[in-house]
Design a protein around this nucleic acid. Structure first.
Lengths: 161, 161
DNA sequence: CGCACTACCTTAACATGCTAACTTAGCTAG
DNA sequence: CTAGCTAAGTTAGCATGTTAAGGTAGTGCG
């Protein structure tokens, strides 16, 4: 059953995503990806779109499109960088800040409920997950992501996102 | 902190997927999703598209499109069910069977290498993953049982993450 | 027979990923 | 000053996910 772990992992994440999406969509009319983007902006301060794309683990075009949508919704503000250069500084609007906080709190509650009900040790599972992630980041499966992939850099540990 | 596990899980899975995708794309010119679809067909016997969509965890239209593509590639065979009804029986062609086996073996090797390098206990992690998945599945019906088809409908305070 | 119900599949429109290629702005050097 | 380099953002086209709505085969009842 060697294939089972990767398969289950996949299933687990896909379902978590869908659940998160349904919850946010129902409660706030916001998709999970959009929430995540807002959260990243909030955590990074006044990031460029490139910084957001790296932190989110998506390509720049994806981040570009996403920030455009969020700005259009009035949750995000994108201003040319006063320091010059072809870059934009992203920040949350008042609405955006409120939205992020509400969504974050809601998802956090739901997730902790789930972990508790499953009987899994949060700390233990989180630790192993990070070990796997680090192994993927540092050595990269031969022929894999490796150098080419620019996703989630090896951020030490606290703030991931 | 609390949010970290769900994010890490997300990041881990996303990267595993991308890695698998790159490996398969490079070696066999097949995407990971397509491989997964073939694998499911192989495991289920001669499933209908609906069965595949459920097993894969995607919607029926997705499965429909995917099987169409795979049939077009000559990896999958879709015949009207001789038993009647508006349904199609899916099966792998000789090419499809060979492709699945090669890809499966390759991914398995790579994945085991990764787990070994990470220092994580495969059995332990697999067990916890399964617990979470089960909690997510059962939680879909807190007291209402049934409605099993919908993947985690608007579950009160259980899913997400 | 005819109409409704169920199960399965398909089509249409849209959300989000990705890669490739192009544009824009500031910097550096001849 | 022009030419080239780098960084950041955008556009185009495709892969694959979703929901909504429609089509097709059996089954069952008045």
């Amino acid at each position: 059953m060697p294939q089972d772990l990767s398969f289950d992992l996949h299933a687990l994440t896909a379902r978590l995503d869908r659940s998160a999406d349904r919850i946010l969509q129902a409660e706030y009319g916001l998709s999970y990806r959009r929430f995540l983007t807002l959260l990243i902006v909030s955590r990074l301060g006044a990031p460029t779109q490139r910084a957001v794309s790296e932190e989110l683990g998506v390509s720049e075009p994806s981040a570009s499109r996403m920030t455009g949508v969020l700005a259009g919704m009035g949750l995000l503000d994108a201003q040319p960088d006063p320091a010059g250069g072809n870059r934009r500084r992203l920040s949350l609007t008042a609405d955006g800040r409120q939205m992020v906080e509400q969504c974050r709190a809601l998802l956090e509650r739901r997730f902790h409920d789930l972990v508790k009900r499953s009987g899994v040790s949060y700390a233990d599972y989180a630790h192993n997950t990070r070990l796997l992630l680090d192994a993927l980041n540092t050595s990269a499966v031969p022929g894999v992501a490796a150098a080419t992939t620019t996703t989630l850099r090896d951020v030490p540990s606290t703030d991931r996102a």
